[in-house]
Simulated assay, not measured.
Amino acid sequence: MNWQGSIVAIVTPFNKDGSVDYEALYNLIEFQIENQSDGIVVCGTTGEAATLSKDEYREVIKFVIAKVNKRIPVIVGTGSNSTATAVENSKMAESFGADAALVVSPYYNKPTRKGLKDYFTQIANAVSIPVIMYNVPGRTASNIPADLIVELANENENIVGIKEASGNLEQMACILRDRPVGFMVFSGDDAMAFPAVCLGADGVISVIANLFPKEFHDLMEAALTGNLIKARELHLKYLNIIQLCFIESNPIPVKTGLSLMGKVKEEFRSPICRMEDQNRGKLLVELQKLLVQTSTYMSRIEEL
């Protein structure tokens, strides 16, 4: 296994009545594949998985895996603050044909190092598909130490990677220095994807790729192949929209951006809510500027 590049953490579109908009979800999948995203994460943070019912979670996973049909990898978000639930979710994802499980560290309960190790080990032992750990202290309130990440990778054959979203390049560098051969490291922050790949990371699990899949694929491809001038140019070009996509809690801005592009309805699950008007205006201005420069999206400009 050698997954690299830009893997999109896809949104879950909703209808006005609150139900999942499967037509829009299908169109988003095709949009991502046509524009060369290197993989799809479904039911992650950006997919508002925490607000889906158990039945909805199951059906969205099944739908995405079926529609992608092995054209690119599908990675399912299966983590939980309960080890038993994370195990159940991971087994379910495996049974539906997922290519890997993305397992966030337990949120809210702030486990100790021993608890973190037990959590990831139990999940890895319960399934045969690859497991990618997900470290995002800003949401979970606890950090997975670099040496524990490496320890888990060495002790569990199917723990094959980490989505590292600590915002700490030194921690990422330590993982990259000490990781076993074949262990994948993905930036969990779009703004740090370029410097992370320069350090040796394998790519990014991206929010901004929902809006600009081809451009973020090209950025990662350029960085991974050593074309740092092109990669830096793309990084700086899209840095402002990346920052605006986190001006409010993810996925509020990116989903708003998709609605402005006519790809989803501007619908969220409470407590996620619509974007503040002032921030929405800033996002619209930057989208218009970038879309004018991007031939892929010229057909959408006059409608914005």
Rank of each mutant, 00 (worst) to 15 (best):
Y57W: 12
R58P: 05
V60C: 15
I61C: 15
F63L: 08
V64N: 09
A66H: 01
A66Q: 15
V68S: 12
N69I: 03
R71D: 14
V76A: 10
V76M: 07
G77I: 07
S80T: 01
S80Q: 13
S82T: 12
A84G: 10
A84S: 12
A86V: 02
V87F: 12
E88I: 00
N89E: 04
N89D: 08
K91A: 14
A93P: 03
E94G: 00
E94A: 01
E94Q: 13
S95I: 12
S95Y: 00
G97E: 15
G97K: 00
G97T: 00
A98N: 09
A100I: 03
A101M: 10
A101P: 07
L102R: 12
L102T: 07
V103R: 02
V104Y: 05
V104A: 13
S105L: 08
P106I: 05
Y107Q: 15
K110S: 09
K110T: 07
P111M: 01
P111D: 11
T112L: 06
G115N: 02
G115F: 05
K117F: 08
Y119G: 01
Y119P: 00
Y119A: 11
Q122L: 11
A124W: 04
A124C: 11
V127C: 14
V127H: 12
I129T: 11
V131W: 14
I132P: 06
V136L: 09
V136C: 14
P137R: 00
G138A: 01
G138S: 14
T140E: 13
A141D: 14
N143Y: 13
P145I: 03
P145Q: 03
P145E: 01
A146M: 11
L148H: 06
I149P: 00
E151T: 04
L152I: 02
N154S: 10
N156Y: 06
E157R: 03
N158W: 08
G161I: 01
I162H: 14
K163D: 08
K163W: 10
A165G: 10
S166M: 11
N168W: 08
L169Q: 04
L169V: 04
L169H: 08
A173I: 02
L176S: 11
D178H: 00
R179S: 15
R179C: 00
G182R: 09
G182K: 01
F183S: 03
V185M: 08
S187V: 05
D189H: 09
D189F: 02
M192Q: 10
